[in-house]
Design a protein around this nucleic acid. Structure first.
Lengths: 210, 210
DNA sequence: AGATCGGCAGGACAAATGTCATGGGTGCCG
DNA sequence: CGGCACCCATGACATTTGTCCTGCCGATCT
């Protein structure tokens, strides 16, 4: 609660990452920095907001693929309920669509795990200084991808069609008629410019439309 | 250079991991241990053997999903060409089939990235002491899965059917007739006890049959 | 030599999938 | 109010996919 000059106390960081080894390694790594302190670590998306409310971090470092709640959804919720906390997304996949959705969710930065570790602490400091940290190449790709042309239902059906689920399966899960499911699927295939569900799902994921 | 008690020199470790952040963090982490020295880091599977030949590590810490050559294939090659080097597999996915194939490839240990970081250094020491390090629950699952009933061609066709490739696509890639492709696919679906290619591929992957 | 297994292919058939046209219902916006 | 987009549903249709049966070839084992 005592904030005075630029950097009175170390940056308080919340770390959300499901892989134990990665989480531990990152925490150790960040802990070695003079001006950074990892105040909370969580392994599931639905623990993020609670942890942020109790530990009041300056920055939340969020993975996207998390059990419970996606890091992107958690980011959106953080913006509302813990406004003082900036969000830095740290993810395996540099999909253009992820970046788009991260920005929509109010993230202040977007890092891929491919980069060197040294980038991380720097990105945290830059985000805290008010900068928006994004890989320029990725930003370009995200812009060229455009917004999603898929309707909500088309998304649902596409998602439910993963892993070899049949039309009947999807219809049962979503309480739709089989005809309707096929219609949505056909629409999604058309909009993605692909030849079948599998390709459509792949394309939609790639562009962040699901 | 300074020899003390148990070991004359620190354990020489080769680290193969494609995610830069993970690789860097692990290297830093292991480097902090007194008795461990990371002598080489590579990001691609096809660099592993070369690096091992030049740096002569005691242990190779290998991810499975790597560009170029899979960590499992690299492990098999290491056993042949760098016999003094033990292999410890470190992977995201605790699929039973991965474990099976790792053991077939002559790995001395199998760790999942989910576990705590502290496990890692301990596992390295235990492997070096001659132990075989495997998660017991995973070992049980691997045994219950049984060996692959799929023939070589059935595997090929299944793999080529990923991501929505059509029968015609697969036939073209593998230089087969469409009838033949459908026959293999049908056989694979039957042997996996599934309903279509997508499920068959999923099941086969899960059990390590591809 | 005969039996067996795997690779390869063709045909015939049923089931699942994808396409299209059509229509009704809702809510939103100009 | 009239469009407009989205949701949901039918029915008809072409295409793709999955199943089954048959057959040929070569390698391997007994």
């Amino acid at each position: 609660m005592t904030d005075e000059t630029p950097r009175a106390h170390p940056v308080r960081v919340l770390l959300a990452e499901d892989q134990g080894m990665m989480r531990g390694a990152l925490a150790l790594l960040l802990g070695m920095e003079e001006d950074i302190e990892v105040v909370a670590q969580v392994a599931a998306g639905d623990e993020i907001v609670d942890a942020a409310l109790t530990h009041r971090p300056d920055i939340a470092l969020l993975d996207i693929e998390l059990p419970g709640l996606s890091g992107l959804d958690a980011a959106a919720e953080l913006r509302e309920r813990v406004p003082g906390c900036r969000v830095l997304i740290l993810t395996t996949f540099g999909r253009p669509g992820y970046l788009r959705r991260a920005m929509d969710a109010g993230a202040a930065g977007f890092l891929v795990k491919d980069g060197p570790v040294e980038e991380l602490a720097g990105a945290i400091r830059r985000v805290l200084a008010g900068e928006t940290v994004v890989d320029p190449a990725l930003a370009a790709a995200a812009l060229s991808a455009g917004p999603s042309p898929l309707t909500g239902r088309e998304c649902d059906v596409l998602r439910a069609s993963a892993d070899g689920a049949t039309v009947a399966d999807v219809a049962a899960v979503l309480h739709l008629s089989e005809s309707t499911v096929r219609n949505y699927l056909s629409a999604a295939i058309g909009k993605t410019g692909t030849r079948n569900r599998a390709e459509a799902l792949r394309a939609a994921r790639q562009r962040g439309w699901v």
